[in-house]
Amino acid sequence: MKILVAFKRVIDPDARIKLTADRSGVDTDSVEYKANPFCENALEEALQIAEEHDGEVVLVSAGGPDIDKTIRAGLALGAERAIRVEIEDTVLDSDLAARVFAAVYKEEEPDIFFFGKQAIDSDNNQCGQLVAEYLGLPQACFASEVVIDDDGEVATVTREVDGGLETIALTLPAVITADLRLNTPRFAKLPDIMKAGRKTIDVMDLDDLDIEDTALKIELVSLEEPSARQAGVKVGSIDELVDKLKNEARAL
């Protein structure tokens, strides 16, 4: 069984970020990066399935050589190899990312294509869905449990939906996106970190992939810092609180 996992690098969520002077993006001079937590859940699930079904896990990511560090962290956890599609981070929207991943899917033909349900930088929650659509594959998003049958033909996925949990069965190949409660990602082992440096990261150019439409569908107009938080007020009683919520905040 072959499992492809989309693995994205994001700015460390704990870092204090600032915008560039022209507000066209985030100033990345001294920010630190991490793997997107949802992608880590996706990878962990892929590794567990691969261990059980004697499979191979392949990472795929899009970006410049500076994302290799994050890819290596994924390789150290147990993925066998990785594919990096050379593309400038800043010229990627969810749609183009999805077209890129769909093209990689065609090259690799995996049984399962795992994604994180969303990336915590732009929080779009679109990539997995779009890929499934472009490839005409069944999809199960927000997975909190995945069971693959013995023959490796059907995935039974429990999804976290608004009303509770929904369990569906999909015929493989399929797209699955991971939620945080799916599993607890493992820690890398030192010998595996050492080996990760020797694993291959195949670099593909956008031109190598047969993508018809490479146009961006989203135009970034400008970025704004969140406005500073207003000082709060102390209320004297619960009645006063309720009154303020009702009449001032109009929240009730």
């Binding site: 290596r72 962290a73 150290a76 820690f187 890398a188 970190i193 050492m194 990760a196 440096g197």
Partner: peptide, 13 residues
Amino acid sequence: HADPELISDILDM
């Protein structure tokens, strides 16, 4: 084998 890159990864871990 003591690549600074590798050592930096190890420190992160």
